[in-house]
Amino acid sequence: MKVFEKGKMVPVPSTSIIPERDLGKPPVLECVHLGIEFGGLKAVDDFNLTVGKTEIAGLIGPNGAGKTTVFNLLTKVYTPTHGTIMLDGHDTTGKSTVQISKMGIARTFQNIRLFNNMTVEENVRVGLHNRIKYSTAEGIFRLPRFWTHEKEFHERAMELLSIFDMQDMANIKAGNLPYGAQRRLEIVRALATNPKLLLLDEPAAGMNPNETAELMENIVKIRDSFKIAVLLIEHDMKLVMGICEGICVLNFGRIIAKGTAEEIQNNPEVIKAYLGNNSMEE
């Protein structure tokens, strides 16, 4: 594949590491020369990444490397100043955050963004907004479709909450949940949108080792049962090395390494980037 940029043909670096089982299928995500500048500062520069259809991929790097910015580019919170993003073969140029959600990317946030004044179940119901529909008038006048569809909202929400055994928290206000449960609820809400690609921004942050171990299992379980791809940002190296099939290392907005867990751990560039940072524990 060739991409036309700045007046010349530039070959796309073929450093993607797609798991073998996904090789026959088109990738779910392709970032080509993706970049953004904030007033001259290149927060993300020449970011090339391909994620397979059912891959669990990791995006790591020191604080301020630009990882969250990549997620914001993928979901169009920021508009890229360079490059293209292809989602499941479709160009996402010019799309809005809402359209991206409809196209199949769902995400969680590093700084948790729940609907704090709503209950746990209502948060998931908002996630189901585009999957179960009835009109405002049907809602106000409580017409038959309101009742059947609200029942469906309830059943689907409960089903999704059962992924993390959270059914009995359904009526608690999201803002009153413990930290770990809030992170899990964000994942459930994201899954409610029926994504093809799930972006997790530091899902284990603030969790204790037990919770993290459980989360690892659940991420794999989610990938297997929903048959979706997961791209996750995480500082917990046990989690990243444990479940990520392909890992991409970002430093100062640029990719410095790509590969399997083993390759990354032995990469001198990566070790140098993390040196003195202490955040890369075995």
Partner: peptide, 23 residues
Amino acid sequence: KSRTGRAVIAIRDNRIAAESVGV
């Protein structure tokens, strides 16, 4: 207490999150 009302409250509580789930 309807689909649209929930969407409106979600936007009030957290606009970016609401947009991220397609509201």
